[in-house]
Design a protein around this nucleic acid. Sequence first.
RNA 1: UCCUCAGUAGCUCAGCUGGUUAGAGCGGCGGACUGUUAAUCCGUAGGUCGUAGGUUCAAGUCCUACCUGGGGAGCCA
Length: 514
Amino acid sequence: MIDTTQKKVVSLDKLVQSLEEQVVVKGWVRNKRDSKALVFVELRDGSGFVQAVVSLEDVGQEMFDLAKSLSLETSVIFSGKVVKDERQVGGCELMVDAIQVVQQPAEDYPLGKKAHGVDFLANKRHLWLRSRKQWAIMRIRNRAKYAIHTFFQERGFIQMDAPFFTGNACEGTTTLFETDFYGETAYLSQSGQLYGEAMAMAQGKIYTFGPTFRAEKSKTRRHLSEFWMIEPEMAFYDLDMNMDLIEEFIKYVAADVAEKCVKELEVLERDMSLFDNIKSTFPRITHSEAVKILRGEQEVNGKTTKEILEGDLQAVKDRIAAINEEISSTEAEMAAGGIKKGKLNWMRSKVDKLKNELKEQEEKERNIPQWLESAINFPPGEDFGGSDETVLTRMFGTPVFVYKWPKAIKAFYMKTYEDDPEYVKGVDLLAPEGFGEIVGGAEREDNYDVLLAAIRHHELPEEAFEWYLDLRKYGSVPHAGFGLGFERLIMWLTGVHHIRETIAFPRSYGRLFP
RNA sequence: UCCUCAGUAGCUCAGCUGGUUAGAGCGGCGGACUGUUAAUCCGUAGGUCGUAGGUUCAAGUCCUACCUGGGGAGCCA
């Protein structure tokens, strides 16, 4: 039994500050390697990681055998001396003098050290969260959330909570979850925006930060049934001010995460060029310009979509050739024999990785011509598909604002251009690297008659919008706001290619457990 | 709802135009190794090949339906 009251208990992220001291650490066994007189135990405690070294000479046979018997994810308390070791990631390791097992699992830990498939991991999400990569993502999510609140709080925004139960499908477009509300049909909220507008007329500048629900049977890596959204709403803001705010906001959050989550981004091997690209001014183009760019009628930095995409396609083809070459040469080498087992394993895992990359590249090879086809033949006045967003941001390499949208494809509450009534003052911010639309916003229609006409035109139940129309009746002002998909932002910041990894327990089509 | 790909050991996968008794690595277990970083060596256990039909002398392999999952479309953040 280790007397934790007599010794200094240290969290692993701070361990290096206690060099040459006797300390106690508490955590879980992440991995273990043993030999005749040494056991290496990799520990994690939530704050960080360390390698603990148990030497037979130091601890005696009984405790050494205990160390040897530790299995993955055993919860433990170790005491020992912190020693400097440049070979270790944290710069130090723990020379153990005593071990206490808190709980030793009776069964093998289901998650191995080798890669698993997505379905298996999703079913073991409650355990998957303990792994390094998920640990890093959850910490970045936490930091981003903190940064978002800080950003708005420092600028005088008031946080508000919009209701989850709503009486009507407010924008009338998406499929919502139905529930029973004391005998009445209620829906789970798909957006807090309309309520945010009411609060903005009371508080000036507000933001919501809560869950929203969409019952779309989407099976893509960008969709969730339950996700978190940040929805600021500002009185006396027009579209330009809205875009200024979005840009400042995104830059602030990204810079904060880049500064405060260095370790986490390292674990994720995030390509840090993102955080440089984001420093430049985000281009602002109208929907009509975006269409021209897609169709190849307008160049970006002297290049057309055709030139860029054909270049990308060639690069993909070269990569495929290179992968195939590497796979066959490695396999030939393996078949030739005379290779040590360790090396052979290494080669085998290399081939596995290459084959996976090959599948991805081949998918790209199939996709790019379709993307180009879709871009070049893009019908003016339509909304963008996923590939069009990818193509568009590919042209710039930075986030891009697309504003001034055709009225027909946008929501009823967006303000019409006074001098160009076929267009509305909506704006989307598209993230690069294929992450797609992360922000959707607009200046809201503030004229009572125009808004009422829009509600009727969209055949929405007028009585449900009476209170919303009231906002235009009593002291209506120009106002604007936007919605940021929190998980999409996290995807982009972390570079993970699946939105289901950005939230602790994702809810998506076909996934209710764990 | 539609298109598309997949389901073989606990996990990740191989299994060719159907043809003896179903393969590997990891993990497990037993043993060896004084410094290892999913990556030392030897041995060992582990499978009604998603389900149900069908074709055939013969089905993991071909056909049909269904189930489950991946990716995408639609819709969106």
